[in-house]
Design a protein around this nucleic acid. Structure first.
Lengths: 188, 188
DNA sequence: CCCATGATGTTACCGTCGGTAACATATTGT
DNA sequence: ACAATATGTTACCGACGGTAACATCATGGG
């Protein structure tokens, strides 16, 4: 652990992975070997901790998605890579994903603009990707935006469903979604 | 108010719409002119109240979607009608929609199978619609399921985005999404 | 050398929330 | 008339988020 804050965040991470939604400030503090007030000194309030926690995962996940978005081999390959990157990420850390998606964003009613809803940021990222997609030419900006946020939700919702149906192999889910999207893109 | 339960639910509804996420059992009880234990006698726990609350709205919304799913005029018309029905519904009652989507399902960690997350049930409904869609023939059941939950999320996420961009006309959003989906369906 | 400063740590407490126990009062069907 | 059922209350519990008050320890400038 480099600095203090990082150490605390790693402890919080461990608790969230182990306890799921039952993570409390007391538990997190205990995991870090300290008590509550120190946590509050570092993160202000629970929302602050959650935002800090969310920020690192979101940044990492968005990084992977950004890489996938520039995969070489054409639109179809890029589509598959991006969908797969998303599902692989939530497969590797389902608890963290659940936390980010279904807890953190809701838990903190105040500062919505700080760490915005994750799908939203994924959508923005996607919109940029779609607008600069060579195979789609000069796509209408509104269309790009609407599609992007829609597709972000599509992948996310499928991910949610898939979390409860682990018997379905990831490749199958990726294939079905990608085929739908690729065929859809072809309308242009 | 017909029976007791309905009266309590209407009070709860008022509080949820007025107070948003700050609705507490005490507040709801006060709004109904009673105290907490009566609420608990009727709904068991907070999750029970939320489920009951969600159920009425979900049933109404799903009813509209079901109607849209059997619109006459071919797959394209059905797709447009369904997307439009969803967006029209969330346009007419955004607070209720937010409650259903982002609060009710998350709030109750236990009984997930009772009143499932709304997108989830929309997804199930859609899956049935897709499987029995004449234009899609004998579609692979897994594909139908994956598509359905994905499309449910697609419409939902776009709806979320659209709530913050009311300057975009509904018809435009519906058109963009529908075109993507219809083209996607054509791969079969 | 001393001591001010800032970070680290603790215990003990507060208000609120979800939830329950215990008890009292109508209403109603047989 | 009476048992059962629904309605209502007050008072409490444990857990949680959050804070106040106080103690400890390193460090670096006069």
């Amino acid at each position: 652990m480099t600095d203090r804050r990082s150490g605390l965040l790693e402890a919080a991470d461990r608790v969230v992975q182990r306890e799921g939604p039952d993570a409390s400030m007391n538990l997190i503090a205990a995991e870090a070997g300290i008590t509550k007030p120190i946590l509050y000194r570092h993160f202000g309030d629970k929302g602050g901790l959650y935002r800090a926690l969310a920020a690192r995962h979101i940044d990492e996940l968005l990084g992977r998605l950004r890489s996938a978005l520039v995969t070489r081999g054409g639109l179809a390959a890029r589509t598959r890579a991006t969908v797969d990157a998303y599902l692989a990420a939530i497969e590797s850390q389902p608890q963290v994903y659940r936390f980010l998606m279904h807890r953190a964003a809701v838990e903190d009613p105040g500062v919505r603009g700080d760490v915005d809803s994750f799908v939203r940021r994924f959508g923005d990222e996607l919109a940029a990707g779609i607008r600069s997609e060579p195979a789609l030419g000069n796509i209408d900006p509104l269309r790009a935006t609407v599609w992007a946020h829609g597709i972000a939700g599509l992948v996310q919702a499928t991910g949610d469903w898939w979390l409860d149906h682990p018997e379905v192999p990831r490749e199958a889910v990726v294939a079905e979604l990608s085929e739908l999207l690729i065929a859809g893109f072809n309308l242009s």
